[in-house]
Amino acid sequence: MKVVAFLRTEQGSGASRRLRTAGQTPGIIYGGTEAPVSISLDHNALYHALKKETFHSSILDMEIDGKVQQVLLRDFQVHAYKQLVMHADFQRVNSSEKIHVKVPLHFVNAETSPAVKLSAGIISHVLTELDVSCLPKDLPEFIEVDLANMEVGNSLHLSNITLPEGVTAIVHGDDPTIATAAIPAGKVEAAGEAAEGAAPEGEEKK
Rank of each mutant, 00 (worst) to 15 (best):
residue 2 K to V: 11
residue 2 K to M: 14
residue 6 F to S: 14
residue 8 R to K: 14
residue 13 S to W: 09
residue 14 G to F: 02
residue 15 A to M: 11
residue 17 R to T: 04
residue 18 R to I: 10
residue 19 L to F: 06
residue 23 G to D: 05
residue 24 Q to N: 11
residue 25 T to M: 04
residue 31 G to E: 11
residue 32 G to W: 09
residue 34 E to W: 06
residue 35 A to E: 15
residue 35 A to K: 15
residue 46 L to K: 07
residue 47 Y to G: 01
residue 52 K to L: 14
residue 52 K to M: 08
residue 53 E to G: 07
residue 55 F to N: 01
residue 57 S to A: 05
residue 57 S to T: 09
residue 60 L to Y: 07
residue 61 D to E: 13
residue 62 M to A: 06
residue 62 M to H: 08
residue 65 D to A: 15
residue 66 G to S: 09
residue 66 G to W: 09
residue 70 Q to H: 11
residue 70 Q to C: 01
residue 71 V to K: 01
residue 75 D to P: 03
residue 78 V to I: 12
residue 82 K to I: 00
residue 84 L to W: 04
residue 84 L to P: 02
residue 89 D to I: 01
residue 90 F to V: 00
residue 91 Q to S: 12
residue 93 V to K: 00
residue 93 V to S: 00
residue 95 S to I: 13
residue 95 S to R: 12
residue 96 S to F: 12
residue 96 S to D: 15
residue 99 I to T: 04
residue 100 H to G: 00
residue 101 V to K: 14
residue 101 V to R: 14
residue 101 V to G: 02
residue 104 P to L: 08
residue 106 H to I: 15
residue 107 F to G: 06
residue 108 V to N: 04
residue 109 N to Q: 00
residue 111 E to S: 10
residue 112 T to C: 07
residue 112 T to I: 15
residue 113 S to T: 01
residue 114 P to K: 08
residue 114 P to D: 10
residue 116 V to D: 03
residue 121 G to E: 11
residue 129 E to D: 15
residue 134 C to D: 01
residue 137 K to V: 10
residue 138 D to W: 02
residue 141 E to W: 00
residue 145 V to T: 01
residue 145 V to G: 00
residue 146 D to T: 04
residue 147 L to R: 07
residue 148 A to I: 12
residue 149 N to Y: 09
residue 149 N to S: 15
residue 154 N to V: 09
residue 161 I to T: 03
residue 162 T to S: 11
residue 162 T to Q: 12
residue 163 L to I: 10
residue 168 T to A: 15
residue 168 T to W: 06
residue 169 A to C: 04
residue 171 V to C: 07
residue 171 V to Y: 08
residue 172 H to G: 02
residue 172 H to Q: 14
residue 174 D to C: 04
residue 174 D to H: 09
residue 177 T to A: 07
residue 179 A to D: 03
residue 180 T to E: 04
residue 191 A to M: 11
residue 191 A to Q: 13
residue 192 G to E: 14
residue 200 P to G: 05
residue 200 P to R: 12
residue 203 E to D: 07
residue 205 K to Y: 08
